[in-house]
Write a protein that binds this DNA or RNA. Structure first.
Lengths: 589, 589
DNA sequence: ATGTGGGCCTACCGCCGACAA
DNA sequence: TTGTCGGCGGTAGGCCCACAT
């Protein structure tokens, strides 16, 4: 496989795609170099099973590999821009797969986010309030690539932040991963405690740390959250270790090239190593359900990466909220066909959270009552927590001095859209969102269409199937998922007709462990892709009522249907057919 | 104003838009006919406040009015096809407005519907079940233009159908409105009672009438619902009044030109009469909140029209369902700025339910408790109903012989998306959906991504503010709306940042009565459009964070930004800017 | 009066090698 | 090795009229 960040030429309408030589030789079928201009047609399937066809030609002086015909359509349909990346992967049987990874665009403020995602609107907010008051379950869908929230982070980072406290004058460091894969850090001093954004959310009781960076030219945001930093060993003395003119590039907002997101050191030749490959994927859950046995240590780091580099990206990442009453569980006999699910499951995990896709529902084994029963053992622990860890939790005291705060956003979704779940705890159900007075609530809701949602932390209570790690307040496992089978992502991705899932969580877990796959190709064993293909086709063809099959690159056909020349009623019919196809594409792209 | 159904030439990429002469003279600013080819630039705002610019030229031999430059962009952006219609309206101040009305496309099966609208999926379904079991409020958003449901009909038709019963062998007639505005009718004989669709919903307990049509060549569906037909005076004798080879055109599915939806008799010249104009609007609530004083008689007829002509269009029209617990009501102090709301309100009402738009939330005056209190007087009436009117209610007996069926889908939304509301009745809360066994529920949910939803009838209980008509079970009024302020349409239309509403329902009602407006222009009095404009701009500009203003027809500028020629980081930025604009368009169009 | 089609110009898409970094 | 550019041909968009209904 190979991955290439697209150049301006690649995405320009002027030309095609310049394939790195090594990549073409490794990944594409060999060409007959005896010919004057050897060429072939490549067919690659994307994440959604759609076929993309490209003309692969070896020409020019000096010779180089190019993708010409078909490439432009791909760029347009995927809305790729310079800085995005494409990824090609060849399986053992020669089948090609491809995916895209979009660059982390600097969003134009939060309003942009609210356009990309289903915003957390007033109705959703009411749902959450209702769910909490009713002690019922609700879900938050979060796409870390479409938008980033300051306050949705790997829970282990949050727990870790409780281990130390900050006070004014304290020195701190902020780790980050630089482009040469070495660890770098910024340092600074805490100057105070402040509101997160006095302008946009004036009067908010959410507090952040005001800091001054040692690195003067770093125009980073001067507000950080405690989990973003850690105390430095040296004490106080503001400009002691000041390092003016850091040799590192600034990584703030003005950076045009998203190289921090695409580590330079990882080129095409490095891709064979899966461990390195994982680091390329941005904001995507890599380990997913494998956190089953070691939840705490395997939590993803994506939020920390993003938040360090975009400290002022406060846009809410909440995609949608569905309020599901706990007694709303439908008959547990319901079962989807799970054929080949692990295929697409794996496939989705490889790609980042940028491409919207069907959120595969996961049925849980136990009923919701199990979760409720488990509240009892979990509650004292959580309650004790906020008492003993006196560190930065004082930042929250303005919410409610009697609060037992037990937030733990769980990140463990098989989909590209991460799923958070919250199970209210009747014994420790004092949630920050609870303690906002009504006036505060209104201001938050009406202030902006996008929603600043520090309140969306959920009390995550461990289930009764303990023994996952040393800590009791572990990070959730399969069998404590809650009734996620009832939750379907709203917003961009329309649920397709077939939504495969597993009959039991055990089945899911075992299948995840049994194979390690990438793009549907096994990385550890021989592939058996037939099942997956069937599933894909089934799901897609049902959309068009069998009128067409998903197929791209019409220009390879002898002649596309002449829409313009058809007349009368047939004209409309042709248009409708195209419309249906475009709808399928729009959903899939 | 004028309205024109688009021809193939109008929507072809080859040319522009041919403006009817009378329309151009009446609606567009006058041209200087002394010139060789007089032309001018027209600027028209659409429903969402977006400006569209067209070059209006008077040329050709013979001379005719044309819209050239800018028209193609409009067609593409709006995805207009032949058969759709555009509507231009000029205000007193010369400001132009325009809207579109899409033809009623024959959808390619139900899966198409589920793509267009937010389908009634399993999660939504669970919400409804939950809401009913909790006796709480839920809302159903229904777009009669995007899809049609067999079972969402004007309630007066349902009531009327209870007046007579059908039995096998009975003759019936089905009225319809033919293209020459005369009333026509089909006749037939009842042959039995059947499931609605044994294939797609096998085992469903919902029953329809099996019929045989006298008109042999009419390939209509042989299943009708009781409210679609009425008993004929003549009795039995199957082929007695058979009329072979009806001179009327068949109005079944094969009809390519949707002339039945656009009555031929209504041309541009007829548009001045508002009464006629109303008939042009398809499936749109015309009278809306004015049904306050005469609900029964002013209910819209749209469903009957559609269902008669598309008897086999069983696609669910449910756009989305939001489950709002009745105790979820947020602080009643919340109030949006209602400035100019009646403007857009009226504007939306004029256009049909095709263009998605923000669903303006309507706050109700009384609290939810008022509705609950009114259950008591309403319930006996409803209960008595199903007992005394023994007609076709026997069709429902398979649901629950002890049911008190009191359905009354209320159609009274200010938005283009009709809103149905259901308030469960503790005294008569036996709802069809209630009595499906769980197996049935699952089958329905899994059968198709689109949802056959006869169960979505709501028990509509009259409020305590009686005196609306002679019948106690009237059709709902403003003050029995329920907490609709909490419900925002999901699906296509993203809620914009500003969602104006009225502080009290009385305020809404009075403002609706005080002015009769079309496209924001007053039809009865002098316009005061300033407030509306401000509101529009506010809502839209917040999307782009002030980076741009909604503006179309860039080709009128001296030179559009050369995206292709820009390089480096600026390239990406330009692309992003365009992307933002396109997003705004995509939402608005 | 106006829908449709041909003529024709132009813009841009997209394939090519040249050239340079 | 590969990113960008000029060249250039093909196609489609779009403005014009003629002609037909």
């Amino acid at each position: 496989m190979f991955c290439k960040t697209l150049t301006a030429s690649d995405t320009s309408t002027h030309g095609g795609f310049s394939v790195p030589r090594r990549a073409a030789e490794d990944c594409f079928p060999p060409l007959d170099y005896n010919q004057q201009r050897p060429s072939q047609e490549l067919v690659a399937k994307d994440l959604h099973g759609l076929e993309w066809r490209f003309r692969h030609i070896y020409r020019g002086q000096p010779r180089r590999h190019l993708l010409t015909t078909g490439w432009s359509a791909f760029v347009n349909k995927k809305k790729l821009v310079s800085g995005d990346a494409v990824l090609f992967l060849r399986g053992e049987n020669g089948e090609l797969r491809l995916g895209i990874r979009r660059a982390a665009h600097i969003k134009n403020g939060t309003s942009f986010h609210s356009l990309c995602t289903q915003p957390l609107n007033r109705s959703n907010f009411a749902d959450v309030v209702h769910a909490i008051s009713m002690k019922s379950v609700f879900s938050i869908y979060y796409n870390p690539r479409a938008s980033s929230s300051e306050f949705i982070i790997p829970v282990h980072k949050f727990w870790k932040s409780l281990d130390h406290s900050f006070s004014v004058g304290m020195r701190f460091k902020m780790r980050f991963e630089s482009e040469d894969a070495a660890e770098g850090r910024y340092t600074g001093v805490v100057t105070g405690i402040s509101e997160m954004d006095p302008v946009r959310w004036s009067g908010s009781k959410w507090r952040c740390l005001l800091v001054r960076w040692d690195d003067i030219d770093a125009n980073r945001h001067n507000r950080v959250s405690p989990w973003e930093i850690e105390p430095s060993s040296s004490i106080s003395s503001s400009n002691s270790s000041l390092s003016p003119g850091s040799k590192r590039n600034r990584v703030g907002l003005p950076s045009g090239k998203p190289e921090f997101m695409v580590p330079e050191g990882i080129g095409a030749s490095d891709f064979g190593e899966s461990l390195r490959f994982q680091k390329v994927l941005q904001g995507q859950e890599i380990l997913g359900f494998n956190t089953h046995h070691d939840g705490a240590n395997s939590q993803i780091m994506h939020r920390s990466e993003i938040s360090r580099r975009f400290p002022c990206s406060n846009g809410s990442g909440i995609a949608a909220i569905r309020n599901i009453g706990r007694d709303t569980l439908v008959n547990p006999d319901i079962s989807y066909k799970g054929v080949g699910f692990e295929e697409s499951f794996r496939f989705q995990k490889v790609l980042q959270g940028q491409e919207t896709s069907v959120s595969p529902p996961c049925r849980r084994g136990p009923t919701a009552d199990d979760t409720r029963e488990s509240d009892s053992p979990g509650a004292p622990d959580v309650g004790q927590l906020s008492g003993t860890r006196s560190g930065w939790s004082s930042l929250m005291q303005s919410y409610n001095t009697h609060s037992h705060i037990g937030p733990s956003a769980q990140v463990s979704s098989p989909s590209s859209v991460l799923k958070f779940q919250h199970v209210s705890n009747p014994f420790a159900n004092v949630n920050p969102i609870h303690n906002l007075n009504s006036q505060e609530k209104e201001r938050r809701v009406h202030k902006s269409s996008s929603f600043h949602a520090p309140e969306t932390y959920g009390d995550r209570i461990p289930s009764s199937t303990g023994g996952h790690g040393s800590r009791r307040r572990h990070l959730g496992s399969l069998d404590s998922f809650g009734p996620s089978a009832d939750t379907v992502q709203l917003g961009d991705s329309q649920p397709l007709s077939a939504q495969p899932t597993f009959r039991t969580s055990q089945e899911l877990a075992s299948s995840c462990k049994s194979s390690c796959r990438l793009f549907g190709f096994s990385l550890t064993e021989g592939g058996h892709d037939a099942a997956k293909e069937d599933n894909m086709v089934q799901a897609t063809s049902s959309l068009g009522a069998g009128a067409f099959l998903p197929r791209i690159g019409e220009q390879f056909n002898t002649q596309p249907p002449a829409v313009t020349n058809t007349v009368g009623s047939s004209y409309t019919k042709v248009s409708n057919l195209y419309a249906v196809r475009d709808i399928v594409y729009d959903i899939a792209l």
